[in-house]
């Protein structure tokens, strides 16, 4: 029986960027939905709307995480646990590219909070 491949770990690592993206989307969507339902969107902290601030901070954290995955995949190959050299050559760049794409997607998801009001429905 050959050495165990740690398939689940590797797949999770490979798609880590996308998983962070999904978590970010779930969080900001959920938060905004709750903020509008329970009307705490207007609460303010340091002069900024609370949920705007939270979404902004969470976006920054998610971006940081994406960059972390990216830099790990690019530089710290050994630490990624990809196993053999061949798999590393294949999965490492995929991990990095996915993290990069996810970072763009997270950024896009985070930006509207600066422009679009939180709770108004369509057409005002």
């Amino acid at each position: 029986m050959p050495m165990r491949e740690r398939f689940v770990t590797r797949i999770l690592l490979m798609t880590a960027g996308l998983i962070i993206w999904a978590a970010h989307l779930g969080f900001v969507y959920g938060l905004n939905a709750l903020a509008c339902t329970f009307d705490f969107a207007r609460l303010e902290l340091f002069g900024m709307a609370l949920n705007t601030l939270t979404i902004g901070v969470v976006t920054l954290i998610a971006l940081g995480a994406e960059l972390l995955v990216l830099s790990f995949a690019v530089a710290g190959r050994g630490a990624m646990g990809f196993g053999g050299e061949e798999q590393l050559r294949f999965m490492g760049p995929i991990t990095a590219t996915l993290a990069g794409l996810s970072a763009v997607a997270v950024l896009w998801q985070g930006l509207p909070v600066l422009v679009v009001p939180a709770c108004t429905g369509a057409g005002g």
Partner: peptide
């Protein structure tokens, strides 16, 4: 798109 969306809101 975001700015157009906002434009719709600020009627």
């Amino acid at each position: 798109g975001f700015f157009v969306t906002r434009g719709h809101v600020g009627a």
